[in-house]
């Protein structure tokens, strides 16, 4: 009896507040936009009995999905989100790997402090960390002041409200997600393998590429997915740092819902975004599984 309660409470909670809401999104994505409250049709009329149910299902179609393929705004937004998420993941890896490597090589007594320094930004508000860059990147901002002072440029350049600012924002805010898993694999790396490689005539650089990098592969994969997956649906960064021409699907969904009040299209956008995410999510899960098996 107690066991039943223990299972049922979290189970029912997630069914009601996670699964059912998602089914509602799915259903509304198959409905038509209407000028009514709620702004879509059909609505399920249980009072009409079986005919009501039948009419309800007859009213559903894939029209919204068809619309997404015909209007170029949407597929451009999906492609540009994929591109921004992919490129910023690579950049985060390039910035993050040396940090993780340096941490793993640092003297033992430094490591807890270094770890703390990586975790601290992670606990600090995401919004504030994005906001911090707004002042730096603006036309009168410190970056422009600095560049003018060094003489690299002679007139302020526009950085805020461009795609460049979005890349900087993603790399900055997601950096801890890249550093931590890579550090975790590098920290466990057996130093004697590197010594063996060097004894066998490997240079330090090739030992790094042939031993260290392959052995930290699972950390690299985990870090990349931890950046790529949330970056793809990102809303805050493109809307604060990006410009009007920055197309990201999270922003499109938000605007479709709040500004255009088009619920069926917003829902269809959400369903397609989720379909795109399934592949990276499965690959990520598989990597985690492999890592657990390797450890256990």
């Amino acid at each position: 009896m107690r066991r039943l309660v223990l299972i049922a409470v979290p189970y029912l909670w997630l069914l009601t507040l996670f699964l059912i809401p998602f089914l509602i999104v799915l259903k509304i994505s198959l409905s038509d936009t209407a000028l009514s409250i709620p702004p879509y049709t059909p609505t399920l009329d249980l009072g009409a009995g079986w005919t009501g149910v039948k009419e309800f299902f007859a009213g559903l179609d894939f029209e919204n999905f068809w619309f997404l393929t015909t209007d170029e705004l949407y597929w451009k937004a999906y492609l540009s989100s994929l591109q921004i998420a992919f490129l910023s993941t690579i950049m985060t890896l390039i910035v993050g790997y040396p940090i993780a490597y340096g941490m793993a090589q640092a003297p033992d007594e430094w490591r807890p402090t270094l770890m703390l320094l990586v975790i601290l930004p992670f606990w600090t508000s995401f919004l504030i960390r994005v906001y911090a860059w707004m002042g730096i990147l603006s036309r009168e901002g410190l970056l422009n002041q600095f560049l003018l002072w060094t003489g690299v440029i002679d007139a302020p350049v526009k950085i805020l409200n461009t795609d460049t600012a979005v890349y900087i924002g993603i790399v900055y805010t997601y950096l801890p997600f890249m550093v931590l898993p890579i550090y975790a694999t590098l920290e466990k790396l057996d130093e004697s393998l590197l010594e063996a490689a060097e004894d066998l005539g490997c240079s330090r650089a090739s030992a790094f590429w042939l031993v260290t990098v392959p052995l930290s592969k699972s950390g690299i994969i985990a870090g990349c997915f931890l950046v790529f997956i949330p970056a793809l649906g990102e809303f805050v960064i493109p809307s604060l740092l990006g410009g009007s021409q920055t197309l990201m699907i999270g922003k499109v969904l938000w605007e479709e819902f709040f500004n255009n009040r088009d619920w069926p299209i917003a829902s269809a956008v959400a369903v397609v975004l989720l379909l795109i995410l399934i592949v990276p999510i499965i690959l990520f899960q598989r990597n985690e599984q492999k890592q657990r098996e390797a450890e256990g």
Binding site: I24, G233, F235, G250, A270, L273, L274
Partner: peptide, 14 residues
């Protein structure tokens, strides 16, 4: 791993 915009939208619709 669910994008926040989707979680938010689905809960609002519920």
């Amino acid at each position: 791993v669910m994008p926040e915009v989707i979680t938010g939208l689905s809960l609002l619709l519920l």
